[in-house]
């Protein structure tokens, strides 16, 4: 009776090992294609620069990375990011607050009617409209970007919060009541975890729009930030600097998406991954 047990165990370990190898292979090939994407794109860009288009109009990646080094060295990069991020965090922070409040009170049908069309306009109107209007009204003052960010993103937060609150799991809340769980415990263990994915969706998409709107407002009406630097470089016809700022913009957006938000997701939605894997 001993032999079959051992056999079963060995076959299981080899199975596990095979699965592990397959996963590793999959990972390697995914990274390979991802890096190939970069290599091909940068190669084409470098090739086109000076051949397809004049180098002044399209500086190649090597030039742009050199310019990035120069800008970093003379200390323009960090203050510009600081200014942009400050506007972004204050603006989107306020927007998140406004959107959450509107989403919660819209459960009442009078308030729902009151805010309904405003929410839809916020969702559909291009950010550029608010950027232009607030630039005329407020000029370089901070209110312009803040209001533009709030108007373009609160609707996204609102619809997500609205859906979250509307779909609150009554059966689980009742379960808590039946077991004498105090209200605070129900809020913390049932209501908040239920709302978390809705809040997260609002956060993620709202933030990506807020980020674009912030840079836009800086292009039109500001004397600091990434958008402002792009405008200066553009008026001075420093195309390499324009591209450098655009590149920085991409890097940062990728960093937020791949590192910050995904880490957050892994931490708070572990249960979903476990369930999906099962």
């Amino acid at each position: 009776m001993v032999t079959p047990v051992i056999e079963e165990q060995t076959s299981r370990t080899t199975e596990e090992e095979l699965a592990k190898q397959a996963r590793r292979k999959e990972l390697i090939s995914r990274w390979f294609w991802r890096i190939m994407g970069y290599v091909v794109f940068l190669g084409l860009w470098e090739f086109a620069s000076g051949r397809v288009l004049e180098e002044n109009l399209l500086p190649g990646p090597i030039r742009v990375f050199q310019t990035l080094g120069d800008l970093w060295a003379d200390g323009t990069v960090l203050p510009a990011f600081g200014a942009t991020l400050t506007r972004l965090f204050i603006g989107f922070g306020l927007s998140f607050l406004v959107g959450t409040i509107v989403g919660v009170i819209s459960q009442n049908r009078w308030w729902d009617g009151f805010f309904k069309d405003a929410t839809i306009i916020s969702l559909t109107a291009p950010g550029l409209i608010w950027v232009l209007i607030t630039a005329v009204i407020f000029g370089n003052r901070i209110y312009g970007p803040l209001i533009a960010i709030i108007l373009t993103t609160f609707g996204l937060v609102t619809i997500n919060v609205y859906e979250g609150v509307r779909s609150l799991p009554k059966d689980l809340i009742d379960m808590g009541k039946a077991f004498h769980v105090p209200n605070a415990g129900i809020q913390r263990n049932v209501v908040l975890p239920h709302l978390a994915p809705f809040l997260f969706t609002g956060l993620r998409f709202g933030f990506s729009i807020a980020w674009k709107v912030t840079v836009l407002t800086e292009i039109f009406a500001s004397s600091s930030g990434i958008g402002f630097q792009m405008r200066i470089a553009q008026t001075l016809f420093k195309q390499d600097e324009v591209l450098t700022w655009i590149l920085l913009f991409f890097f940062f957006a990728l960093f937020l998406e791949k590192v910050v938000l995904q880490a957050f997701e892994r931490r708070y939605f572990r249960w979903r991954q476990a369930v999906e894997a099962a």
């Binding site: 077991f179 004498h180 249960w271």
Partner: peptide, 25 residues
């Protein structure tokens, strides 16, 4: 009296482990 309830559907918190579901109550 202290009450317990078993529902028709299990009514477990999907975001808590089995043990934490018991600890919740």
């Amino acid at each position: 009296a202290l009450r317990g309830y078993v529902f028709q559907a299990a009514r477990l918190l999907p975001w808590r482990t089995v043990m934490d579901n018991l600890l919740f109550v």
